[in-house]
Computed example of a mutant assay.
Amino acid sequence: MSEKKCDVKGCEEESYKTVPAELANKVFTFDAKATKVHLCREHYKKYKKETKKEREARRADWV
């Protein structure tokens, strides 16, 4: 069984989390057709920092 790899171009690390491509595209560039992308720990940490306010706003809309 092959492990998933980080989808960030040039990164060969093992996938840590899967996130929505719509938000991840604001930080990194991915395939336009993808709906979800795999990120390694390092890129996931950067994704969280860069999208924190938008993710909080989305959660507030759900309430």
Rank of each mutant, 00 (worst) to 15 (best):
R41M: 13
C40A: 01
A57H: 02
A32E: 10
A24Y: 06
V27D: 09
K9L: 12
G10I: 08
E42R: 07
V63A: 11
E54S: 03
H43Q: 04
A34K: 15
D61R: 14
F30I: 06
H43E: 07
V27S: 05
K9V: 13
T35L: 10
V63D: 10
R41L: 14
K52I: 11
C40Y: 02
A24T: 05
K48N: 06
K4V: 12
C11A: 01
N25S: 12
S15M: 15
E12L: 04
Y47P: 01
D31H: 07
K45Q: 12
E56V: 01
A57V: 03
Y47A: 06
K4I: 09
K9T: 13
V37N: 06
K36T: 14
D61E: 14
D7T: 06
D31V: 05
A32S: 13
W62P: 00
G10M: 02
R41E: 11
T51E: 04
K17F: 04
K53H: 08
T35S: 12
A57E: 12
D31C: 09
V37P: 04
A32K: 13
T35W: 08
K4F: 15
D61I: 11
T18S: 13
K33M: 05
N25Y: 01
E54N: 02
E50D: 10
C40L: 07
K49I: 07
K33W: 08
K45G: 09
L39I: 10
K53P: 01
M1H: 14
E54W: 06
K4H: 14
V19M: 10
H43W: 01
C40G: 05
M1R: 13
Y47F: 15
A24G: 01
K33R: 14
R55H: 00
D31I: 11
A24E: 08
A24S: 03
V63L: 10
L23R: 05
E12V: 11
K4G: 02
E54P: 01
F28G: 09
K26V: 02
E54D: 12
E22G: 06
T18D: 09
K46G: 01
K5I: 13
K48A: 14
K17V: 15
K33N: 14
Y16E: 10
N25G: 07
K17W: 04
E50R: 07
A24Q: 03
L39Q: 00
E22H: 04
K5N: 09
S15K: 15
R58E: 12
L39T: 01
V63Y: 07
C6Y: 03
H43M: 04
E50H: 00
K45N: 11
D31Q: 09
Y16P: 00
S15N: 09
K33F: 10
T29E: 14
K17Q: 13
K4Q: 15
L39H: 00
H43N: 00
